[in-house]
């Protein structure tokens, strides 16, 4: 036996150390899991009176509380989709052009500053975007943009009556959210686009392709999955935004089809209604929170799958 008394001591001392180490690790991992379960559980439990009573009408109903006593979140679900999808469409179009420009068109010296600026802008707190949106963009839109938009065809149907345009509107919400998610989208999509292997680009040019043909037929298709992942990430963030949109959208409790009138979203409604809510109102808001959580969960899964698939694809090539 090579083990002496001394080394047995050392061995057992280290085995105590070892089990302490893994116990602490496992404990914290377990604690985290418990906290997460507590978090979700508390939300679901508080929402239970409403979730159990009226699960379907919660999603389809259009009135909130009042004398009927039932809570329908459809206007807020609609508003969340309106604003977040609208914002992401704008952000993706402008963002792709921006990313392509950064990677392929702007001179080397400016590139590093631009990339750093984009990443820092992605870290700006959302309430600052809300402040800018409410105090700067809102008045600007009311003064210059809304009157101009009133001249578009069929404006009455999808924008509303020009005399009734309000400072707080769905369109303003879409714009503010678009500006907010743009830096994050550009940061991710730029990286994806920049990682398209150089020899694919050289091959495209060698066949006689023009710059735009190379971009649209080679670079963008190769980055497609990653861009989609970045877009769903942006969508998830836009859908969950509270304070950026709170002052912006107005808090109208119905389904809003006119873009220049006020509307509401799930997150903003929760925040704005909380102060005056009754007991059942609070439960309903918790239920709305559950809805928001589910939507965000689905979007997050989609985006993570996409980004992982893109990473795998690039590794293989």
């Amino acid at each position: 036996m090579l083990q002496t008394n001394a080394s047995t001591e050392v061995a057992s001392a280290t085995s105590v150390e070892r089990s302490l180490y893994s116990t602490v690790l496992t404990f914290c991992a377990g604690l985290f899991t418990l906290i997460a379960l507590l978090f979700v559980g508390n939300l679901v439990w508080r929402a239970w009176p409403i979730l159990s009573r009226q699960p379907l009408t919660l999603v389809t109903g259009t009135s909130w509380g009042g004398t009927i006593g039932s809570y329908g979140a459809w206007p807020q679900i609609f508003g969340t989709l309106q604003t977040s999808v609208g914002a992401v469409i704008i952000a993706v179009i402008a963002g792709l052009g921006t990313s392509i420009s950064i990677v392929y068109l702007i001179p080397q010296r400016v590139k590093l500053i631009t990339i750093t600026l984009v990443e820092l802008l992605a870290a700006v707190p959302s309430i600052v975007y809300g402040c800018w949106g409410f105090l700067i963009l809102g008045p600007y839109m009311t003064k210059y943009v809304d009157p101009a938009l009133a001249h578009l065809p069929f404006a009455k149907y999808w924008l509303g009556n020009p005399n009734l345009y309000t400072t707080q509107s769905v369109l303003l919400g879409i714009f503010v959210l678009a500006v907010m998610v743009l830096p994050t989208f550009v940061a991710i999509s730029r990286e994806v686009i920049a990682s398209v292997p150089n020899d694919l680009i050289e091959a495209s040019y060698s066949l006689g392709g023009s710059w735009w043909q190379t971009m649209s037929k080679v670079v963008l298709p190769a980055s497609k999955i990653g861009i989609f992942g970045a877009a769903s990430l942006a969508l998830a963030r836009a859908a969950g935004e509270t304070v950026a949109i709170l002052f912006i959208i107005g808090g109208f409790g119905g389904v809003q089809t006119h873009l220049l009138y006020p509307g509401s979203t799930l997150a903003a409604w929760i925040a704005s209604q909380f102060g005056e809510a009754t007991t059942s109102g609070i439960a309903a808001l918790m239920a709305m929170g559950v809805l928001l959580m589910i939507i965000n969960f689905l979007l997050a899964i989609i985006s993570r799958r996409m980004l992982a698939a893109q990473r795998r694809r690039m590794a293989r090539v």
Binding site: A36, F39, L43, R46, L233, A236, R237, A239, G240, E241, T242, A267, I270, A271, L285, M286, G289, L292, M293, N296, F297, L299, A300, I301
Partner: peptide, 12 residues
Amino acid sequence: TMSGAPSVLMGL
């Protein structure tokens, strides 16, 4: 999942 959760839920 939690890292992307809307922060208003933490308030709730």
